[in-house]
Design a protein around this nucleic acid. Structure first.
Lengths: 140, 140
DNA sequence: TGTCAACATTTGAGTTAGTCAAACATTATT
DNA sequence: AATAATGTTTGACTAACTCAAATGTTGACA
């Protein structure tokens, strides 16, 4: 109802969760854009610790497979990954080139350096937070 | 790696924060779309407890003023708000119509009902979470 | 009082981060 | 051998924005 204002606005905990997520995302974006990489591209690169097929990447990114195709196009064009058919010739396996691996390390460094989460909270508090968030994600 | 910890490397706390934010946002979207309102429109409606001028709404939504113009166009077209010049005739004041006010209450109800945050955590835990997130937002 | 800077809103054009459906190639099933 | 299933690609589209320039309005001040 209208007078139940405690939930309506940004004093609302749900809104705070969203806002914090957006803040962390913005920090990530700032860190990776400094390396001329868009956030989705950076996410893909950071997942390529070992060669992976595109469908797998899609599920890790929780996005459509066709979007991974576009990301891969871009990565290949930039010389950051190679795209080669696997044993099953339907699949394409993405592998970081040396340049890509280097960039991945730089991105990982940049992202972790400017992490508001780890600089705001003690290790114990970080564990607390992790546990609370996990509980939220677990429901349903 | 078949783990469906969907937002990659959820062992990374920052990723977990983002993922939780997205989950909460998705719940919000689901709740309001059931009332045929897009998430940004719903956010605007929920902020209109009292008449507000557009620039003010923009800052509450943290978006460009020109985007509020488009939201307002839509809201007016649907008969949910009126847009009238204020005393200062540069400003336009948005006011919920009766239909808009009714919808606002329905949205507030729908959004609060399906809140993962409040059903996953005890009141005390919610306070803990609020405090941790606030600390993250405060750093900058 | 006239002029000019500042402000609120609007418009037009563009961007980013995707989605969906259909097509295609390859492999698996019957 | 025919058909179904799987993985990727393409084309067309969308949502949710942003930016820059244009428009209308007001306040400041010489």
């Amino acid at each position: 109802m209208a007078q139940d204002d405690s939930r309506a606005n940004s004093h609302n905990l749900a809104a705070l969760v969203v806002r914090t997520g957006e803040r962390v995302k913005a920090d990530f974006a700032q860190a990776v854009l400094a390396h001329d990489v868009s956030p989705p591209l950076a996410r893909a690169i950071l997942l390529l610790n070992e060669p992976a097929q595109m469908g797998c990447l899609a599920s890790q990114l929780s996005c459509d497979q066709s979007y991974v195709t576009r990301l891969a196009d871009d990565l290949v064009k930039r010389g950051l990954v190679t795209r080669a058919p696997g044993d099953d010739r339907r699949v394409q396996v993405l592998t970081l080139t040396p340049a890509g691996a280097l960039l991945k390390d730089q991105l990982a460094e940049a992202v972790s350096v400017e992490s508001a989460v780890s600089s705001a909270l003690s290790p114990h508090e970080q564990e607390q937070l992790r546990s609370l968030l996990t509980r939220i994600l677990e429901i349903s």
